[in-house]
Amino acid sequence: MKEFALFPGCLIPERVPSYEVSLRQTAEKLDVNFAEPEGEWTCCAPVGILSLDYLTSLSIGARNLAVVEEMGLDTMCTPCNGCFEGLDRIASILGKEPETLAKVNEILAEVDKEYKGTVQVRHLAEIYFDDVGVDKIKETMVKPLDALQVGIRPGCHLFRPIEVIGIDFSERYFFLDDLIEATGAESVYYQHRLRCCGGLLRNVSDDLTEGMLRERLMELKEAEVDCLVTVCPLCFLQFDLGQKLVERKYKEKYNIPTLTYSELLGLGMGMSADELGLATHRIKLDKVLAKIGVD
């Protein structure tokens, strides 16, 4: 398989390190080749920065894309929905607006960089589905996860905005179900599984973000799943840490364990909870691990 420039972002390294451990640990078995530049990445300048200044967001994003070109690669892979939305959008804008690209390159000239507009940005989940494929994932599974019933959360920016992603409608069939089923686990359909968790409103209005998250938690609880599986680090934080805050605020109990898809893969490949760094989760995974017989 070709080489991808891996852009982990900051939220995964700083807040969800087990996601990073698991994606690195599982990549080799899936023949996914990641290349990384020596210290050259910066922040992707995500939607919070775009909200304040469009040109700044474009320029910082484009600098990271220029690094991919310098590495001699044409595809960046990011496991973070925030980085994916930001950088995919920037690559898309700069790919079709030569005047904007010229303006951004004037800024980049100050740091001796130039972005030629050749990079494609892809989410890790897309690479699991399109490049690795369901069959290959099935081959690497040594630990049956058949006992698990999971609810998925792709996170909004894996499939929206549709204009940038290049699809007609975001609420149709979703490939994350196939990725789950490839591990043997069952993906349980439940109400509003594609609806926003409010993660990006954290610190802007905690009442609002927790009100939205609470609705999502209620729906998951009704679905009686063993755990939630997501590919978005912000969803992960909402459901792992934010869930505790909702429980305290509303005096309710949900206790829904959350895993990232890479962690689920690692478990299916027979890796231990320690190897995958799962002790960093706040909602205990004991019940899930017991159900699939992992220490």
Binding site: E38, E40, T42, D53, I60, I107
Partner: peptide, 18 residues
């Protein structure tokens, strides 16, 4: 987390007026 390119980022935010 890498911080080698921090200076580049700071130059960019000054150039855009941010």
């Amino acid at each position: 987390l890498p911080k080698k390119a921090l200076e580049d980022l700071q130059t960019i935010v000054k150039a855009t007026g941010f």
